[in-house]
């Protein structure tokens, strides 16, 4: 069933453009001997918005319990790729995804996969902090509530407190859990969104430029938080800041014009890139 679904999709997708897979680009890969085992991996992922191809044959393995950074200039497809991983592209009119993304060997795009369940397993934090216009408590409790994760009120409270603690926000808001979440500062709101994502107990957390709307202090707090969270979660972060990628990630993937140019251990990418485009980007010559 899965293979049939894939082949039919690819049959439709074959784009008659210059970007055709046939013109063959090869991602430069540097294996990391210290990398943790892979649970999430993408094979030949292409994304089309209408007739326009936004992503071209991206294949990458994401190691678990570590931070992987996706970098590249604006419009390179890194956010598009991130949104493929929890099928948020489904919500965009005219978006089409081909290829295969597997979590524990199961194709996320197979028709048997329930997208609601998938998004409970792969959480997401967005570019702009977007807490619900509800109380701090309700923001965090919403996910567990809709998924039926808490059997009692006290259990729900425990989940909320634990999530807020893990997101490093609890001490700051413990006296006003029922104040509106929109009243917090930008950095606090983003940590609230992280707590909200954690509360569902996801295996993977996707972060789409989580610090781009924050000041440097709030950014460094979030970066520390990301570093702590990788103990328990597989994190994929899209970032515009190369310093941020260098600081928080163990693996880095460089995207350019819809192609995955190079991927490998972060220190290797930043100290000794093998592709010329990567080198140009990290030295600031393109971007």
């Amino acid at each position: 069933m899965t293979s049939l679904f894939r082949s039919s999709l690819q049959g439709v997708a074959a784009p008659p453009t210059a970007l055709e897979a046939g013109d063959g680009y090869q991602t430069v890969r540097t294996p990391d001997p210290k990398a943790k085992p892979t649970r999430l991996s993408a094979h030949d992922v292409c994304v089309f918005y209408g007739d326009k191809q936004a992503l071209e044959n991206v294949s990458i393995d994401i190691p678990e319990r570590s931070v992987s950074a996706l970098i590249g200039p604006s419009g390179c497809g890194k956010s598009t790729f991130l949104r493929c991983l929890n099928r948020m592209n489904d919500t965009i009119e005219g978006a089409r995804v081909t290829g295969e993304i597997t979590l524990d060997g199961e194709n996320l795009y197979s028709p048997q996969v329930d997208v609601v369940e998938l998004r409970a397993r792969i959480g997401m934090v967005f570019q702009k902090p977007n807490p619900f216009p509800k109380s701090i408590f309700e923001n965090v409790a919403y996910g567990p509530k809709i998924h039926g994760l808490a059997r009692s009120k006290s259990e729900l409270e425990e989940i909320v407190v634990t999530s807020l603690k893990r997101a490093g926000l609890f001490e700051e808001v413990k006296d006003r859990l029922h104040a509106p979440g929109t009243g917090l500062s930008g950095g606090q709101q983003q940590r609230l969104c992280i707590a909200r994502a954690i509360a569902v107990g996801p295996e993977v957390i996707l972060m789409d430029e989580p610090c781009s709307a924050l000041d440097p202090i709030a950014t460094s707090i979030i970066e520390e938080l990301i570093d702590e969270l990788r103990e328990n979660y597989t994190i994929i972060i899209v970032t515009h800041s190369m310093q941020q990628a260098a600081r928080v990630s163990q693996k880095t993937a460089f995207f350019h014009l819809g192609k995955l140019i190079e991927e490998g251990p972060t220190e290797r990418i930043f100290t000794n890139p093998r592709d010329k485009k990567t080198q140009d980007y990290i030295t600031g010559r393109i971007g």
């Binding site: 919500t91 959480g123 977007n130 619900f132 216009p133 996910g143 909200r196």
Partner: peptide
């Protein structure tokens, strides 16, 4: 309604109906 609110709900695994009735309609 800002798309960020819908994305927040969908990203947490809310179904479309839950997104509409829990978040979009109250706003």
């Amino acid at each position: 309604v800002p798309p960020s609110l819908r994305q927040a709900a969908l990203g947490l695994g809310a179904s479309r109906t839950q997104m509409v009735f829990h978040h979009v309609l109250p706003v």
